[in-house]
Design a protein around this nucleic acid. Structure first.
Lengths: 338, 338
DNA sequence: GTCTTGTTTTGAATCGATTCATTCAAGAAC
DNA sequence: GTTCTTGAATGAATCGATTCAAAACAAGAC
């Protein structure tokens, strides 16, 4: 009687004196098994330390009880929060979430999609980086649907969950105007990123409505270091030309600006007000708490997972939908009215 | 001739006019197949859009090409960095890493270990939360070895990769003394956390060697908010009794102190110097860049994964080893010599 | 032309859980 | 006492890739 390593369902059946079918039923439909057989099986499972082989299970049953999630950067708290939301929903459906990191690398992105296909995940949550929409459509015809996360689907071929960046940008600029800004500026780039483009557009429109010009400081990326550089650059401007309020395309940039201003003796918000975007934890934890535009990160993950299960569970009747959240302002000290 | 959804290996074989064995060989031992058959098979795979079924593969071969990793908190950048290091090594070995989040919850921890066993992962990287060492030993006897991460194994039953927190604490305090601190303090807790205990002990020993008392501010956890509270509390002390240098058990606390001091008008480092622990990205990105004790996070993940593969590949000959890294000081503005 | 040796190719057996058509048992109905 | 009904239990067939012993083939050696 084999024990410990490699006890299989048949061994359990033998020990409990029942058939393999009954053991399988105890595992999957316990209420269809009489009390005494069920307890005998359970005892045998316990005694042998039996653990069901998931590969065999899913080979036979054809379903894997797992989702794949592919994000641009696991180190970015935004994505871990989104993933957390998705994982909670997956757990409710007794699925597990395989989290993978494309690291903004088209090759890795493809490799992980390969993996997901091989593993026969039930569905995929993805923030696309490369040109994968065509492949995703093909995957759906093979029975693996997907939902776009943090990306508005341009076709109606997919469900998507995203955030209205244009509205967010407008909110940020309206706020700066409301606290008395007269020389607002936008910091961010590159404009090939849809999100940067949208946030800028929202802000520019709002500035126009307020009858103010919007200075633009374009950056090649959204990292902290760029913010510091732009901050130093602003410091070197004549005070009359220097912006009195800045909207940064994300919090990293905003924190860079803040550090630069602190080092140079510019006071925030008295000399320059700052509002960021994303509302990462560290926005509120900065020496001068940073105002920011907040996205419902966990909710984004939850909704995305729900839409995915919708399609998994009701494939023929499913209608694709685009969920767009409106981000909200969280005002803190960095934009205190002067 | 079935196409697209559900093309299986036998279909490929039929289309290419070879046996299933040959197709399998093309997939797994391509150099043992003649050129023309190989290219015919490859063409057929392409034409049918065949994707190998990983469940079937691992059921038959008995191995899964995947590792499980269980961390205390995916939202903590420390763990995502460690995971990144581990993933890189896993990728070199053509394995994938399943990252799971116990969220400091013993129930979830057990549930994920269940999952790992069912999935027959080849090995587990874990920062234990609950009482799981016994279970991990049992799993090893069943062929699933594990390595402890960020935890020194107390027995020689496991490999482990950790950091010398006592040395880190001593380094922090030596540094404060070297810049002229005479009333140093330690902020952190609870002392049931081994790491807090160790960091404090290292600092206390160092203070004693320097002939200085070490004030202790104990906290119930290591969160930002606590740091702010302790900061406010220090502000209310008489200046002569107030610490002139603080070692915080982690960077979150340190950032909390910093925010409180900034709000109350205490100057850092002139009035109070601060050194944190972990050197998270935001330590350097604070308005006043924060000195910190830095751990080689990615390296920790890499070494842990290497040790794990060592045991997987050479199970009988494997000798458990404890790798202990010594953390390093990164001095920044918050501890500038006065 | 036969024998060796080495390289390719073949295909039936296999991994372990699930499925489902079938058998069995026990009580209900007549 | 016989037939029905219903719920429980059975076990052979199945999922799809891998394995490996055996067969087929090729290339040299003599």
């Amino acid at each position: 009687m084999p024990t410990g390593p490699g006890a299989k369902l048949a061994d359990v059946a033998a020990l409990a004196g029942v058939s393999v079918g009954t053991v399988s039923n105890v595992l999957n439909r316990p209420d269809q098994v009489s009390f005494d057989k069920r307890s005998r099986v359970l005892a045998a499972i316990d005694q042998l330390g039996f653990v069901r082989n998931e590969s065999a299970r899913s080979l036979r049953s054809g379903s894997t009880r797992s989702l794949g999630m592919l994000v641009l950067d696991v180190r970015n708290p935004f994505f871990t929060d989104v993933a957390l939301g998705a994982e909670n929903v997956a757990e409710d459906h007794k699925h597990s979430l395989i989290l993978a990191n494309s690291a903004e690398n088209a090759g890795r992105e493809q490799a992980y999609l390969d993996l997901f296909e091989q593993q026969r995940v039930q569905g995929v949550l993805i923030t696309p980086f490369g040109n994968v929409l065509e492949r995703l459509e093909k995957m759906r015809t093979r029975g693996i649907p997907s939902v776009l996360v943090d990306r508005l689907a341009s076709t109606d071929q997919f469900c998507s969950v995203s955030v209205d960046d244009v509205a967010g940008g407008a909110t940020a600029l309206d706020h700066l105007v409301s606290i008395g800004a007269v020389r607002p500026a936008f910091v961010g780039g590159p404009f090939t990123l849809q999100q940067v483009e949208d946030r800028y557009r929202g802000a520019a429109d709002a500035a126009q409505r307020a009858g103010l010009p919007l200075q633009l400081f374009e950056t090649p990326d959204l990292k902290f270091e760029r913010g510091r550089q732009i901050g130093d650059l602003m410091w070197n401007l004549q005070p009359a030309k220097r912006p009195d309020a800045v909207f940064a395309a994300n919090d990293q940039l905003a924190l860079g600006l803040l550090q630069s201003f602190a080092a140079n003796g510019l006071r925030v918000p008295e000399d320059i007000a700052i509002v960021g975007f994303d509302d990462i934890d560290f926005a509120s934890q900065s020496s001068i708490p940073l105002s920011s535009i907040s996205q419902p990160r966990q909710l984004i993950g939850e909704r995305a997972a729900q839409l995915l299960f919708d399609e998994i569970d009701d494939e023929p009747g499913h209608v694709h939908s685009q969920v767009v959240f409106t981000p909200e302002l969280v005002a803190r000290q960095s934009t205190l009215r002067r």
